[in-house]
Amino acid sequence: ETEYTFDDKREADRAAKEAQNNGLRVHVTKDGNRWKVRID
């Protein structure tokens, strides 16, 4: 399990989409004014 934090939602969405394309499970959550992408 890996977690990334992004300031920009577009960057978070791009990272999530890339991980999904690689067959990974992805969870995107909002943390204040930042975005967390957790990859299982």
Rank of each mutant, 00 (worst) to 15 (best):
N33I: 03
K17N: 10
N21D: 13
D40K: 10
D13Q: 11
N22T: 07
N22Q: 14
E11G: 07
N22W: 00
A12L: 02
R34N: 08
A16C: 11
R10Q: 14
I39Y: 04
W35S: 04
D8H: 08
G23S: 02
E11H: 07
E18T: 09
K36M: 08
R38I: 15
D13K: 08
D31M: 07
Y4V: 09
R14A: 13
A12D: 01
E18H: 11
R10P: 08
D40T: 14
T5D: 07
F6E: 02
A15T: 09
R34S: 07
T29E: 13
T29W: 12
H27T: 15
R34W: 06
K30N: 07
D40R: 10
H27G: 04
A15W: 15
K30P: 07
R25F: 06
K36P: 03
G32P: 00
R14M: 12
K30C: 11
T5V: 14
D31L: 06
V28P: 01
T2I: 15
R10C: 15
V37H: 00
A16Q: 05
E11Q: 09
R38K: 13
Q20G: 07
E3F: 08
F6N: 01
T29Q: 09
E18N: 10
D13T: 09
G23E: 02
D40M: 15
K9L: 08
V26Q: 01
K30F: 09
Y4T: 08
Q20C: 15
E3K: 02
R38Q: 09
K17V: 10
G23Y: 01
L24N: 07
D7Y: 08
N22P: 02
R14I: 10
W35R: 03
E3N: 06
I39V: 10
A15L: 13
E11N: 07
K9Y: 14
A15P: 01
N33D: 14
K17E: 11
N22V: 09
E3L: 07
E11A: 11
L24A: 09
D40S: 15
N21I: 10
Q20A: 12
W35Q: 04
A15M: 14
L24Y: 11
H27R: 12
N33V: 03
E18L: 10
D7W: 05
E11R: 04
D31P: 01
A19F: 15
Q20M: 14
K30D: 02
R34T: 04
I39N: 01
E11K: 07
Y4H: 08
N22R: 15
N22G: 07
A12P: 01
D13R: 08
E1H: 13
N33A: 05
N33P: 15
E1D: 13
D13F: 12
A15Y: 15
R38L: 13
W35D: 04
L24E: 04
T29L: 09
V37Q: 00
D7M: 09
N33R: 03
Y4A: 06
A19V: 03
T2M: 14
E1L: 13
I39W: 05
N21R: 13
R14Q: 11
R38F: 10
R25Q: 11
V37A: 00
V26E: 01
T5M: 13
H27S: 13
A16W: 04
W35C: 05
G32M: 01
G23R: 03
D7F: 07
R10A: 15
D31T: 07
D31F: 03
D40E: 15
R25M: 10
